Amino acid sequence: MELEVRHLRALCAIADTGSLHKAARRLGVSQPSLTTQLRRIENFLGGELFSRERSGCRPTPLGRSVLIRGRPLVAEMNALVAEARAAAARTGGPRLRVGSTASRALPGWLRRLRKRLPATDISLQMDVSANALLRMVAAGQLDVAFVHEVEGCPLRRPDGVAARVLVEREPQFVSMARDHPAAAAPVVDLADLAGDRWMVDPTVDGEWDGLNRVLAAAGINPQVLHGDYHTAASLIVVGEAVAPCQPTSGPRDDMAIRPLRGDPLAVRLLLFTRRQGCEELYTAVYEDLFAAYRDAALRSAAYRSWLERHGSPLLGASAA
Rank of each mutant, 00 (worst) to 15 (best):
residue 277 G to T: 03
residue 21 H to A: 12
residue 174 V to A: 09
residue 213 R to T: 13
residue 268 R to D: 02
residue 59 P to N: 09
residue 227 G to S: 07
residue 112 R to Q: 07
residue 273 T to P: 00
residue 191 A to V: 13
residue 66 V to G: 04
residue 306 W to I: 07
residue 211 L to C: 07
residue 272 F to I: 05
residue 54 R to H: 13
residue 231 T to P: 00
residue 43 N to K: 11
residue 225 L to A: 10
residue 121 D to E: 14
residue 9 R to Q: 10
residue 96 L to E: 15
residue 320 A to I: 03
residue 63 G to W: 02
residue 14 I to G: 03
residue 18 G to M: 06
residue 181 P to A: 15
residue 153 C to L: 06
residue 275 R to T: 10
residue 264 P to C: 11
residue 308 E to P: 04
residue 251 P to T: 03
residue 313 P to F: 10
residue 315 L to D: 13
residue 109 W to P: 00
residue 297 A to G: 14
residue 184 A to S: 12
residue 318 S to E: 14
residue 265 L to W: 15
residue 280 E to Y: 05
residue 284 A to W: 03
residue 184 A to F: 09
residue 293 Y to C: 13
residue 155 L to A: 00
residue 128 V to H: 10
residue 228 D to W: 11
residue 188 V to K: 09
residue 276 Q to H: 10
residue 254 D to Q: 12
residue 150 V to F: 05
residue 235 L to F: 13
residue 222 P to H: 11
residue 187 V to Q: 04
residue 172 Q to P: 05
residue 183 A to R: 03
residue 214 V to T: 08
residue 297 A to S: 15
residue 11 L to A: 02
residue 134 L to G: 04
residue 218 A to E: 09
residue 309 R to W: 09
residue 117 L to H: 01
residue 121 D to G: 04
residue 62 L to N: 11
residue 4 E to R: 07
residue 179 D to P: 04
residue 20 L to E: 04
residue 59 P to L: 08
residue 273 T to Q: 02
residue 177 A to T: 01
residue 228 D to M: 00
residue 182 A to V: 07
residue 231 T to I: 05
residue 300 S to L: 06
residue 317 A to K: 01
residue 72 P to S: 08
residue 243 A to L: 08
residue 113 L to H: 00
residue 103 S to I: 07
residue 173 F to D: 00
residue 127 D to F: 01
residue 103 S to H: 09
residue 290 F to N: 03
residue 217 A to E: 15
residue 42 E to W: 11
residue 207 E to R: 02
residue 138 A to N: 14
residue 211 L to M: 14
residue 84 A to P: 00
residue 294 R to S: 04
residue 216 A to P: 01
residue 93 G to F: 12
residue 69 R to Q: 14
residue 123 S to I: 04
residue 237 V to A: 03
residue 207 E to G: 06
